[in-house]
């Protein structure tokens, strides 16, 4: 039986750093749920025993270095183009498990076309969509998913629908798309929601393994830095504000 990094047997481990993660320290801000999402994906890759045949597609945003964290082959894509790159990988190497890891700027702004058409084609890929309602890496600008009234560096008085439209509802938009086999919105603000998020992530990868079609999990995430909140306040804000705009749930499940 293999040993964990701490020298214990796997059987004794209630919780260990997943083999789907490298030993590299993630560069995310303290309390940012990007790390939680990485951890859950890595656990799923380990549990499904697909680390050795997975290619992660890192995109542009705070998660630009995702290829350093996931213990898999990886390709870094241009801003928004992750699903097109993943399409190329999957079509040329169908035995490979491919997932993109995209933020709301990457997926819902510059890359909206790529994700919709990949879904439309029913590409057998998995998309991890991190929605924290703000551009993080470029210093807190409005994202398509920014809430009405939410202050960002480019909506200093709060998002005004007259000026900059309404929040973009990716899951609702994709839910009518016949190429989508699994679609869920989750969050990671307490043990219950983290466990639920992991179930959906696992289901999304299983969807790809089964060859059933396109799968996407939207993870309502925190950005303590650009929300100007502590990590715990940010989790509370998800509960009080984000989940009102973005209700959780499984939108499409080919298997159920």
């Amino acid at each position: 039986m293999s040993e964990t990094r701490a020298g214990h047997t796997e059987a004794e481990a209630l919780y260990h750093r997943p083999a789907g993660l490298t030993d590299v320290q993630m560069r995310y801000c303290p309390g940012c749920t990007h790390g939680t999402a990485h951890k859950l994906i890595a656990e799923v890759l380990e549990e499904l025993d697909i680390i050795e045949r997975t290619v992660a597609v890192a995109t542009v945003g705070c998660s630009v270095y995702a290829y350093e964290y996931f213990n898999t082959d990886a390709v870094q894509a241009a801003h928004g183009r992750g699903p097109a790159v993943a399409t190329g990988i999957k079509r040329a190497s169908p035995e490979t498990i491919v997932f993109t890891y995209q933020g709301d700027g990457d997926l819902a702004a510059i890359g909206l076309s790529e994700v919709i058409h990949s879904a439309q084609r029913g590409e057998k890929m998995t998309v991890m969509f991190i929605n924290n309602a703000v551009f993080g890496m470029t210093r807190g600008q409005m994202a398509p998913t920014t809430l009405v009234g939410q202050k960002t560096t480019t909506t200093p008085l709060g998002r005004d629908p007259e000026m900059s439209g309404m929040p973009m509802m990716i899951c609702e938009m994709l839910s009518t798309n016949p190429g989508v086999a699994y679609l869920a919105r989750e969050t990671m603000i307490d043990p219950k929601t983290v466990r639920s998020a992991k179930r959906s992530i696992r289901k999304a990868f299983q969807t790809q393994i089964d060859g059933a079609g396109f799968s996407l999990v939207e993870l309502i995430s925190t950005c303590p830095a650009w929300w100007h909140k502590t990590p715990l306040e940010a989790m509370q804000w998800v509960r009080d504000e984000m989940l009102v705009q973005y209700p959780l749930g499984v939108f499409v499940d080919y298997d159920g």
């Binding site: 290619v55 597609v57 390709v75 894509a77 241009a78 183009r81 097109a84 790159v85 993943a86 399409t87 190329g88 990988i89 999957k90 079509r91 040329a92 190497s93 490979t96 076309s113 790529e114 058409h117």
Partner: peptide, 14 residues
């Protein structure tokens, strides 16, 4: 064409 060349990028990576 944005998507085409990025699909090419993905396939080329394999």
């Amino acid at each position: 064409e944005l998507a085409s060349i990025n699909m090419v990028y993905g396939a080329a990576a394999t």
